[in-house]
Amino acid sequence: MNRLLIANLMRLKHSKLFWAALAVMAAVPTVAIFSKLIYGTNRAVDDAMFLYPILIGVAVAIFIGIFMGTEYSEGTIRNKLMIGHTRPMIYLANLITAFGAALAMLVAYMLPLLVLGFSIFGTPFMSGATFAKIFFVSLTAILSFCALHMMVSMIYANKAGASVVNLLTAFLMLFIASWLLSKLSEPEFITAYGTGSGTELIRNSAYLEGGLRIFCQMLVDLLPMGQAMQIALGVCDKLWVLPIYSVALTAVCTVVGIAVFNKKNIK
């Protein structure tokens, strides 16, 4: 496993795609800080602090598809198998590498935010404990992103195909999560304008109730992009639930991925 990890990390070092992803991740908070500086606000650091899970979710979809797909397209995965590395070890080493790359993207995002943001706007309003809790939840969400995209990339031995599937999955999750969150954020009562004094509250027909509300909330909590959006928007009531879903999704994806990869005919 160590040998595979070292080899993967050295390949990561040579990867232009990886460095490009880091550059983009660093550029986003830098631009956000300067735009806030222009428009004038003192919450710039807090506002930009937890946007990274969404960005990393999209970035790792592309990165994992291409980086791991190269092993198939250039046939180099055969070099690992032929000299006796077991398939579960190859899979896990790739997953750890992908998570490591995602963490590097996180550092690339945080560095300009902390250096520029803190020096321009001062320390954030958020307490240290709150930051630590949300940061931990975001890490588990990033892990589940990696596990999901890794499963696709290790099962589908086509670099372009796997990258497209990963990207579509990321955007589909983004679309579904946005829609679900907008539905869940509907108020239970709305003001009935044009009746009586104009301040009478009536039931909102768009408000989700009962089992449907529980199902939609569960779905948005389960989807890594749903978690990322809740973290970014700060709309999660039960933060402690999210890591449980993330770990469960990671475990399921990894077990399924390894089981299929174990049986896979490599050409």
Binding site: E74, G75, T76, R78, M82, G84
Partner: peptide, 21 residues
């Protein structure tokens, strides 16, 4: 068999090389 395969080297169909290296 995993250990025995360490005594083996192979080029299957096309060479397994990283083109960017």
């Amino acid at each position: 068999i995993s250990k025995v395969r360490r005594k083996l080297g192979a080029v299957v169909e096309t060479p397994s090389i990283y083109l960017s290296m």
